[in-house]
Structure formats: C-alpha cells, structure tokens
Amino acid sequence: MATGGRRGAAAAPLLVAVAALLLGAAGHLYPGEVCPGMDIRNNLTRLHELENCSVIEGHLQILLMFKTRPEDFRDLSFPKLIMITDYLLLFRVYGLESLKDLFPNLTVIRGSRLFFNYALVIFEMVHLKELGLYNLMNITRGSVRIEKNNELCYLATIDWSRILDSVEDNYIVLNKDDNEECGDICPGTAKGKTNCPATVINGQFVERCWTHSHCQKVCPTICKSHGCTAEGLCCHSECLGNCSQPDDPTKCVACRNFYLDGRCVETCPPPYYHFQDWRCVNFSFCQDLHHKCKNSRRQGCHQYVIHNNKCIPECPSGYTMNSSNLLCTPCLGPCPKVCHLLEGEKTIDSVTSAQELRGCTVINGSLIINIRGGNNLAAELEANLGLIEEISGYLKIRRSYALVSLSFFRKLRLIRGETLEIGNYSFYALDNQNLRQLWDWSKHNLTITQGKLFFHYNPKLCLSEIHKMEEVSGTKGRQERNDIALKTNGDQASCENELLKFSYIRTSFDKI
C-alpha cells in the first residue's frame, strides 16, 4: 500500500482533458527560462521544448504516446526543470519506465491550478516501474492521483506527508504495488545497510526511497516546507523545498512566496507586481503582455491589467481597466465587458449561442446573426445582446428569417469595421425574408467608422429604411451602385405612401 494514499474509496472516473512563447529569463536562482504550460502528445517531438525550461508557468501534460519505446527515452533528460506552477499529468506514455532521468531536479509542483483537485496525476502508464522524482520536495496545493499503472512499484516507500501538507485526498490505487509483488529495495538494503531515512506512518517504520538508488530526502521537522541542505541544516524561511546553503534567500532552489532578481522575498516591493503567484514583474512586463494579447485571437491570451499590486489576466467583477495605466478602477454604474472572439468572429444561430455573449459591452471581433427560429426570440436576444455598444469588426445579418427588427441591439452605437466582410463591408444584410426595420432612427444613433453597407434580398425592408441608415451611420456616399439592390429590397412591402385627393359631386333626387 502506498504510504499516505487512500484505498478502496469510491472515486469519480478520471477524465483526461485534452506555445513556446518565453516569458522571460528567471535569473540567477533558476538555471534556465520560464516556459508556458505545455500539452505534449502523440510523439516526442515537442518534448524537446523543455530543454531550457527551469519553470513551467502553467501545467505540463505528457500523454497518448503509443509508439514510443524505452530506448526512445534513454537520452532524454531535462535537468534544468525545477518547478511547475500548476500540475504534472502523465497518461498512456508507452515505453517510459521512470522519471528519474527525465526530470531529475523537479523540486516543486505548486498546484496553482489543479487537474480535478490533483497536482500530480500518473494514470495508465503501462510501462512505468517507478516514479523516480527523487528531488520532489513540495506539492504546495492539491493532491496526488496514481492509478492503474500495472508495473509501478516504489510507492509504499514514499512518505507523501513530507511532500504535501495533507495526504487525506491522495488516491493511489490499482498499481502493481497493490499486489505486494514489488519487493522494493532501498539503497544499501541488499548489503544489509540502512542508507535512507525511515519514518513512521500508520504504525509502520519504513525506509523512504524513490528507487533502488535514490533515497527520499527527509528534512528535520523544524525546517517545515522550506527544505534543508545535504547536511540537514534548514533553508531560509522564504525558500521552498530545498537550498544549497542554509538561511540564505539567494540560495533557495525555489521560493515559498515570490522570486525577485535572484532572491526569494515575502512580497513584491514597489515598483514590482505579483505575477502568477510566484514571481515579481515590473510595469513594462505587464504592459507588454497586455499589448501582445490586445489584437491576438490565441486562446488563453489575456490583456493583463494591474489590481491590488498584482498583474492579473482581467479586472475583477465591479472594476474596469483604465487604459492609460492598466489599473483596475471601480465602475460607475454597470461595468464594461470586452469579449474577445477566439477566431475573430462568432455566429449567433440560437439563443444558446447568444447567451455566451451575455453582459458583453464591447465585441472584439465580428458578429454573424443567422437565426431561423426560436421561442420568445426578441426578448431572449435583447437579454443577451442588448448591452453590446461596440463591435470592432463587422455585423452580418444573414438568412435570419425569424427577425423582424434589429432593435434587440438596443445599445449598439459603434461598428468600427477594423475587419470587413469580403474585404469591403462593415454591415452586411443578406436574404432576411421578414426583416422590416433596422432601428427606430428617431431614437437610435449608430456610427460606422469604416467599410460599406450591403443589402440584398431583404424583400420587406424598404429602401427608405436603408437610406436612413446611410445618413445616420455616416456611410452615405461610400456605397457603390450594386451594394444596395434596388429590386430585391422592399419588393414585397408597401414602401411608397402617396396622399390621394378626392373630389365629389353631391346629387339628390331633384338636383344634379
């Protein structure tokens, strides 16, 4: 039985969820670079991206490699990797027998973001014989899940209580170790020597080791999670996991709180800001991140802002960003909400898709409305799209047979046209069989910064309504002859009103 693990408890099935942008060198404390989270699957090609990484700022997932063999891993080693800020997950990587050479110096898994409450997941690794993470000293947050690894031993010899604050939620089941077939031998045991430290858990006094050649490092209890030197002297209180010299914040392997210019500090002093819960960055760093993602459509890219001495992905609820200094300031009234469309555009074809934009005031991208039916549609669209004030790209209304009016965009005031449909149009209306009105132009103002209007096959939309939009939106004169079809717009509506004058002759039985 794995020490510190839980057996036999019912657990939810383990679901495996399925960018080499360097964020800056980590400095003297770390020998390499800070790398983003990685999802490495199918083959070993991307694994080489770990070569210079000291910190993975995010998670590391290595999974679904069915053609790899043990010899493929023999020359692979990433000794610079010290810390993973989120979680480490391995799933069905064939041929991998140990992690001792792959990650010989991995010391800390912070667990800032977890995989279903777990910071370390080893699942269905069919050839893994031992973990071998002999320098792993601290899992700051989260638990361990090690399950269905039929060859995995050296679990009962690990004292997880020396690595985690609590072992109650560890789930370590259905491994070879369960069948008591392992016969784990710690260093020196074969020669009758006791080389590794022994600890007591559940009444068992057991030597602690990761492999037959690597003991588990056990520091004096007084050192807590700070770690200790090879001689057993406690590291500085700002260290986490390990250090090369005692009581020196510049000799830590990793930091308990924050890293700044080669030393570990309790908090980031001005003019620095907390970033990702582990390091200090200056304003320029946060500003660069903001600008890199301002026009990016890459998933996970955030326009970072500053709030409460932190550089964070977005302002919290009730705050909006001051564009001059990136500071989050309290909103006066309802907060603006910028919604970034991942692929640059979004099609609204149902109430469900409209709900995804609920509360958005600025759309960074283009909207395509293609709704053919739905219950209580006008009210639903207004509830979900009615706060949109600005669209950076274009607005396209296409084959939306259920629409009679666009009044559900009740606050839309600006279409920038930074991206144009077919390279020309910022407003595009095609084949809307029941569209009769755009907006009530006596109450609604709309500016279209650039781009043209396109109207074709809107049989109940009168040309007068379209011409009014040209005047109000500032697009009059931009359109070419064929942009607004004269014969297919309003051709099934009563669009022309003329005053009919009647004269009559009164007659009676005795007068003409």
Rank of each mutant, 00 (worst) to 15 (best):
L29Q: 11
L29R: 15
E33F: 06
V34T: 13
V34K: 10
P36A: 09
G37A: 15
M38W: 03
M38L: 04
D39K: 10
D39C: 04
I40L: 05
R46E: 03
H48E: 12
H48T: 12
I56C: 00
E57P: 00
G58E: 01
G58V: 00
H59K: 01
H59F: 03
L63C: 01
L64V: 03
F66V: 01
F66W: 03
R69C: 09
E71W: 02
R74G: 02
L76H: 05
S77E: 07
S77A: 10
P79I: 02
P79G: 08
I82W: 12
M83G: 02
I84R: 00
I84A: 00
I84Y: 00
D86S: 04
D86G: 09
D86W: 00
Y87F: 06
Y87Q: 04
L88M: 09
L88W: 02
L89F: 02
L90C: 09
L90M: 13
F91I: 00
F91E: 00
R92W: 04
V93P: 00
Y94Q: 07
L96A: 01
E97S: 08
E97K: 11
S98D: 01
F103G: 00
F103K: 02
F103T: 00
P104T: 01
T107V: 08
I109E: 00
G111V: 00
R113F: 08
R113A: 03
F115Q: 00
F116Q: 00
N117V: 01
A119G: 06
A119V: 02
A119D: 02
L120I: 15
L120R: 01
I122K: 00
K129Y: 03
K129P: 00
L131M: 15
G132M: 01
G132P: 01
Y134N: 07
M137K: 05
M137F: 08
M137E: 02
T140P: 05
R141E: 04
S143N: 10
S143E: 06
V144S: 03
R145E: 00
R145V: 02
E147G: 00
E147P: 00
N150R: 14
C153Q: 03
L155I: 07
L155W: 07
L155G: 05
T157Q: 04
T157D: 04
T157P: 10
I158C: 04
D159S: 05
S161I: 05
R162P: 05
L164E: 07
D169I: 14
N170W: 04
N170F: 05
Y171G: 13
I172H: 03
I172F: 07
V173L: 13
N175T: 05
C182K: 05
C182Q: 03
D184Y: 08
C186L: 04
C186G: 04
P187H: 05
P187N: 06
N195F: 14
N195D: 14
C196V: 06
P197R: 09
A198C: 11
T199S: 09
T199Q: 10
V200G: 04
I201Q: 08
I201P: 10
N202K: 05
G203A: 11
Q204M: 14
F205Q: 07
F205M: 07
F205P: 14
E207V: 13
C209D: 01
C209S: 02
W210P: 01
H214R: 02
C215K: 05
C215W: 04
Q216R: 02
V218F: 12
V218H: 14
P220N: 09
T221E: 13
I222Y: 02
K224M: 10
K224A: 10
K224S: 09
S225N: 15
S225L: 05
S225M: 11
C228P: 02
C228D: 03
C228E: 05
T229H: 05
T229F: 13
G232I: 06
L233F: 06
C234K: 02
S237F: 10
S237D: 10
C239W: 00
C239N: 01
C239A: 02
L240F: 06
G241F: 01
G241E: 03
G241L: 01
N242W: 05
N242R: 12
C243W: 00
D247L: 09
D247P: 02
P249C: 04
K251I: 03
C252M: 05
V253L: 11
C255M: 01
N257I: 01
F258G: 13
Y259I: 08
L260T: 12
G262P: 05
G262A: 13
G262S: 08
E266W: 08
P269A: 08
P270L: 10
P271T: 11
P271Q: 13
H274S: 15
D277V: 03
V281W: 00
N282L: 09
F283S: 08
F283A: 02
S284I: 00
S284P: 03
F285I: 03
F285K: 02
F285V: 04
C286W: 01
Q287R: 13
Q287L: 04
D288W: 06
D288R: 13
L289F: 07
H290Y: 11
H290R: 07
C293F: 05
N295S: 09
N295K: 15
Y304L: 09
Y304E: 01
I306V: 12
N308E: 13
N308V: 09
N309T: 10
K310T: 10
K310L: 12
C311T: 11
I312P: 11
P313L: 02
P316D: 00
P316N: 07
G318E: 06
Y319P: 00
Y319Q: 14
Y319L: 08
M321W: 11
N322L: 08
S324N: 04
S324M: 04
S324Y: 07
L332R: 13
C335Q: 01
C335A: 01
P336N: 13
P336Y: 12
